[in-house]
Design a protein around this nucleic acid. Structure first.
Lengths: 210, 210, 210, 210
DNA sequence: GATGAATGAGACTTCATTCAT
DNA sequence: GATGAATGAAGTCTCATTCAT
């Protein structure tokens, strides 16, 4: 006990990070993200989240009004983070497909969380209110819109052939999801490099023989 | 009890003539397909299915042990039909991408039912048992496997450049879903021709400038 | 099975009345009336009602949408019955106070149920929606309005001295409640005759010395 | 323990000067009285009381073991105050009905608090334990007993005709409640004078025509 | 002593499944 | 065999009470 005082001076900050001051809000958000990701919206129970978060059931309700609000929080976090990652990874000096590869590599570092976002965005039926539905779709829109902007610039620079930017961005996102998330449901997971490689293979050159 | 048999003969026939004693099993399957398609697995209630099918709730349980088995039946039917449609549409004399377009056009004629299949295949989280999950995935495997076979042949004939048939088939299916089903969640739906056209645009030629 | 047919002809109706065909709706209404009466609205639980009624919890919801609707049913029944009793008991040929006594005697035969109504009418705070509140007050209004009509006629006939009929009716109802229901909470219950007698004593002659 | 007395003298005064160290107990009691009065027993939450009292929720539990005990305190205070008011208002030299009017006028000055008492005394069902029930009834007993004493003396003096004092007092209290509290639930509220006037009208002379 | 974040028992309600008719 | 009334497990949310700070 006493000796801990000696080195604790420098460690105070760190020790806070270690454990003693448990951040229940974070615990809950992490647990909810995990549960929503694994079981979806309906099949996720507040009891379950509480158990995973290792908190009392009522504790969740001190931070979030109800299940839907908790869900919204998870979604919003995801959108923000995805935007941030994408923005940080883009380098205007690089070629389009190179930028795309870099962004994807970065995104894949957070693959698990994204998997949640992607899965959830497909479960819109489960959430009753149009507002919630709207909230979910906005995530996809945000990402697609961002990629579409990059596509437009790439067309202008002549890096890719003329095409509808919005749909091209949509197709890219879906293909990315397919390779990074859905493929491994039934096959061996792909390395980050492989995902980027395949995406480029299919989208850049096409299947027509040379 | 006994006397009722005497006059019931005439009534039975008559009632059969009037109300062809519609095949209750089919009624239930159709109703379930519609409900699962519209609301998803969890949000579909046995009460609702019974009401749509115009049968008693208990009747469902004379044909299917439980909700999950009913769901499985729907999935199996869908796989079979998709295979049949694909086989009927293929003409070995045609070019690969032409065959692909034809198959897709046919599949799109049943778009609504497929939408169900596609949606449901993404709702696997909702179903607890690994068995059910397995059952769902087998549908995708069946379709992907079929397309992969076509891809292999197309490579041999030199119609498309060498590539991994399995993954190429997987990518094709996902892109098809994206264009035919998911796109319209947030945008104007595409005509059958448009879906085929875009699929070819992105997969055949790629985005690299000429 | 077969022999039952012989005697069942005459007994069918009766046997239904005896027991075998348990009327669950009535069971539930009776149980709810008892529970609401004893514990009030909030403190009455659906679990409790189910237990008293000896039915499953879910059964209640096959007859009533929710707790509030169940409550409304009880209230409506009470209003109807009170009106019916009052109307049956009035004889235009009798003197006012004699009619009052008769009506009260009849009402007292259903004392227990009325106790419920009276108690509940005082628990309006517990029920959230203004509609429910309105529904409760309408019961008192109905009874007071009815008595007020009788009072007006009695004044015209010169049987009682001029007074405001509405308030007089209100006072009479409250005094009746006080004697028949509330008195016994803290004292020996009164006989029907006694209630009628005291009501007449206080309301007819007053306390001024002769 | 002892030393705290020494310095506490100076501190107490000082701290009282700064933030009069408002008497937290009183704050809580006032808040609880208000909430119980407005919402009833069940619908009053400890959170709500704490908020109204402007203290921490836990602070309530340093003064009262639980919700029921807090409730009891409110009731006891009310009984005492009602007794005090009644005793102060009685003048042995006045006639009975005049005394009654004066007492009522005084009581009506505290109408709001009394309303609480009266309402609560009717919500006994809400409180589970027989002890609490007992505690509530004692309030009514106290008031009725007090009036009964006055009635007895009035009979002796020949101011009112012979009658059972206990029941007469009971009827008077109920009629007072009816006029002062319950009438305004469904009608225009009465002035203090009117309440006294009507009470005298009905109880003194009765409805028999002259 | 004061505080309020944390807790979990318990309330209402839904719905898959059973079983008597 | 067909039916749907009946059931109770399970889900969401509230709130009295505790306890570490």
């Amino acid at each position: 006990m006493t000796e801990s005082v000696f080195w604790s001076i420098g460690q105070t900050c760190q020790s806070k990070g270690v454990l003693p001051i448990i951040d229940r809000r974070k615990q809950i958000i992490d647990a909810a993200a995990k549960s929503f990701s694994m079981f979806g919206y309906k099949a996720t129970t507040m009891d379950g989240v509480a158990k995973i978060a290792n908190v009392g059931k009522g504790t969740i309700y001190t931070f979030f009004t109800n299940k839907e609000e908790l869900f919204q929080e998870i979604m919003n976090r995801m959108i923000s983070e995805m935007k941030r990652i994408a923005e940080e990874a883009i380098d205007p000096g690089r070629l389009f497909f190179d930028n795309l590869s870099v962004v994807l590599e970065h995104l894949l570092d957070f693959q698990e969380e994204h998997e949640l976002a992607l899965k959830l965005s497909q479960e819109m039926r489960e959430i009753g209110t149009p507002m919630a539905l709207e909230g979910l779709q906005q995530m996809e829109r945000a990402v697609v819109g961002y990629i579409a902007g990059q596509v437009t610039q790439a067309i202008k620079k002549g890096e890719i052939k003329p095409c509808e930017p919005e749909m091209t961005a949509f197709i890219m996102l879906k293909m990315y999801m397919a390779l990074a998330v859905e493929w491994k449901k039934t096959h061996q997971p792909l390395e980050k490099r492989q995902v980027a490689g395949y995406l480029r293979f299919y989208m850049e050159q096409g299947l027509a023989p040379v």
